[in-house]
Design a protein around this nucleic acid. Structure first.
Lengths: 201, 201
DNA sequence: AAAAATATTGAACACTGTTCAATTCAGTGT
DNA sequence: ACACTGAATTGAACAGTGTTCAATATTTTT
């Protein structure tokens, strides 16, 4: 049944990504299988392997899309709600948006970190650019507060890794040890305290 | 070949845990399989399932041991090097020890977070106690600095989630975007800035 | 209409977690 | 010494997995 739907390679790739995304969203990373994706778009495994090198590269592409959506979400969050507010407000807005996104798309967001490269080699360039892209929001908010550009980069990374840590531990239920403080409250506390420490340097 | 080595259930369980740990350390979470563990201790799959409910519960037990070792490691780190130093020094020592442990046992440490409970239910009690145990070190260091006990708990969780975030992003190579700042330097910066912000409240 | 080129299939391989009837054996009773 | 019993252990079976690639189906070119 060749060329059945006259879909190009790119079209098949996108259909596969759509289907795979839906599967992960519904059944999680573990529920994702080549045959399931292929069946969902009306093809068989073989075709899928014609369009993706392997399972890992499919996962990486889905993750790329997740990063794109996250970037979009952060953008609208800071542009709509509190335009041109101070750094603290902006950063808190960003953190809420980040955490909100992670909670809304938990399985896809989890997959962002379940994927691991073979020991020794790094993430592909296009993926690292997307990561930087997401990061740029934090840097922009922090720049007015920290003079030096290199220092801005460092502070942004440290602070955002911190917010990410809160987010990931909450979502994976490693932080429910005591009084039910929400992850957003925790992130707010981190940001406020960190910024105060930064100002009083 | 029944009762071949006259091992009790508990002994078999421990042998299995030792073997599984070695496999994960060498080949990662993905390399762990029931048949491999069984073969390594001279039994077959069936016996393994007599001693562990399923793969997940085996993983959870390995994780328990990893937490125990982590706890030990943190203890020796603060008791030997800098006994009775100020909070900042202690926390930095703890962070270095935490990160060092994660880097020394990367696959086992990763598995700590790759394991996920079925959606809806929580970690078993014995596991949560181990988590609290590890946390207690951070709380102890932070207590003199923060008056209120509830506030101490909050600050400890926020700060440690931050350190964990740095650690996890570095190990999973999501933070190599720019000038090669080490994860330990980043954690130090986080701790110093956070503590300054905490003091100048 | 025949030939060439390309798209698609699906069986095959070596693996996975999990179950459970069948087998093998240690200890006891005779 | 021998059968019996009950527990320990096995390993085949099931339904799935990622991945490959000769074979087939279809379109395009000649």
């Amino acid at each position: 049944m060749a060329r059945r739907g006259k879909y190009s390679r790119d079209e098949i790739r996108n259909m596969a990504l759509d289907a795979a995304e839906a599967i992960v969203a519904a059944e999680g990373y573990a529920g994702l299988s080549a045959r399931k994706v292929a069946a969902a778009i009306g093809y068989t495994v073989g075709t899928l392997y014609l369009v993706f090198e392997n399972r890992n590269s499919l996962v990486l592409r889905i993750n790329g899309r997740t990063l794109d959506r996250l970037h979009e979400h952060l953008m609208t969050a800071i542009s709509s709600a509190s335009a041109k507010k101070d750094a603290e407000t902006t950063l808190i807005t960003l953190a809420r948006a980040y955490i909100g996104h992670a909670e809304r798309e938990t399985p896809l967001w989890n997959m962002l970190f379940e994927y691991t490269t073979a020991q020794g080699d790094v993430m592909p360039d296009w993926y690292r650019r997307k990561l930087e892209h997401v990061f740029s929001h934090v840097e922009a908010a922090l720049r007015p507060l920290v003079g030096d550009e290199a220092e801005t980069g460092r502070a942004a990374r440290v602070l955002w890794a911190g917010v990410h840590g809160i987010c990931t531990l909450k979502i994976r239920q490693r932080l429910d040890l005591s009084g039910g403080q929400s992850d957003e409250e925790m992130a707010t506390m981190l940001i406020k305290t960190f910024l105060r420490g930064l100002r009083d340097r």
